[in-house]
Design a binder for these strands. Structure first.
Lengths: 172, 172
DNA sequence: TGCACATATGTCGGTATTTACATATAATAA
DNA sequence: TTATTATATGTAAATACCGACATATGTGCA
């Protein structure tokens, strides 16, 4: 039971779901490919944390819908009580900025511009999501709201930094 | 040559350094354990990107000091020109917030408080580092300043969010 | 009809990363 | 004296993660 496994349990605590959809929904919280998700779900089922039923579909391929077992819900509860480990951020751009004196300034500027666009897109996506959720009945969970606000906070701050950094570089 | 390897080349582009010190200095940019650094440095030396000399010390154990070769500097320059991949953030706390309705609210609050302290410490550490650098002669590289400012931006924003989130939870 | 694409699940091989095991030197504190 | 800590380097085993390969269904478009 690694962090990804608890991420799956967390998702399933809301509602049963297929591996495919779990994979899509997890991307913003704990990115993982389907090749990591599917075997992990089998293993978790083998260990008794989840179970699945086959759901036939007419408009799409059939799917396996997983749900929490009591064991799974207990494991989730226990995990929630232990302090979260520190966040890890891996961003190649920080390394390139660090070494930028060795390269072409234009290349670095182009990469910062790409990053500015990345953050703008992210903010737009978040705003759409927040709007969609605010229309929902019943209103989404507290945790969900906290997370979406966090996305806003940090994306706005990252965007502000990237734009500021670009100005710094243009001034030279 | 993976991202970590380019991180090492980036560090070495400033000055020759030991594997041990490279490991320490990389923690804030691309975290890695010594067990990953040492074999990678050997391999990079084998491939001609770096070379090392043995430096005896009297107050500490002897060390291997690595430096860039011309091949290494060329590789670094080429890497700087290709667009950086998107950042990856892995934070267990986001998953726990997402699933918090399943657990004890007090546990979540405690973890948010720990995180508030984490960001405060980080900001303090960054401020010390920025002050230390601003006294240096000659002044540090542009990239270094951009990175330290980024650390400030995002830590302040994360701190603000964590404190806001705690208030939200206390209000219930 | 053929093609591309989203949905859906899976395996395999390789790379990246961590944890644990191992060793050695020098300073410092108990 | 002994223990601990920081410095310094390394290996081995296990885990986490990714990219490629593989297959199949249903939709929409040319």
């Amino acid at each position: 039971m690694n962090t990804l496994a608890y991420g799956l349990l967390s998702m399933l605590s809301y509602s049963p779901d297929s591996g495919y959809d779990l994979m899509l929904k997890l991307q913003s919280l704990w990115p993982a490919k389907h090749s990591q998700i599917y075997p992990l779900l089998s293993q978790m089922e083998n260990d008794g944390y989840v179970r699945h039923v086959l759901v036939p579909q007419t408009d799409k391929p059939d799917k396996k819908v997983y749900s929490l077992t009591d064991t799974g819900r207990d494991a989730l509860r226990a995990w929630l009580a232990v302090p979260a480990s520190e966040p890890v951020i891996r961003d190649e751009l920080t390394l390139k900025l660090f070494a930028m004196d060795q390269g072409n300034p234009e290349d670095i500027k182009r990469q910062l511009e790409l990053r500015v666009q990345y953050y703008r897109d992210r903010i737009h996506w978040l705003n759409c999501k927040i709007e969609a959720y605010s229309m929902k009945e019943p209103p989404p969970s507290r945790g969900m709201m906290l997370l979406m606000q966090r996305g806003r906070f940090s994306s706005e701050s990252d965007l502000a930094w990237a734009e500021w950094a670009l100005e710094q570089l243009r001034d030279e």
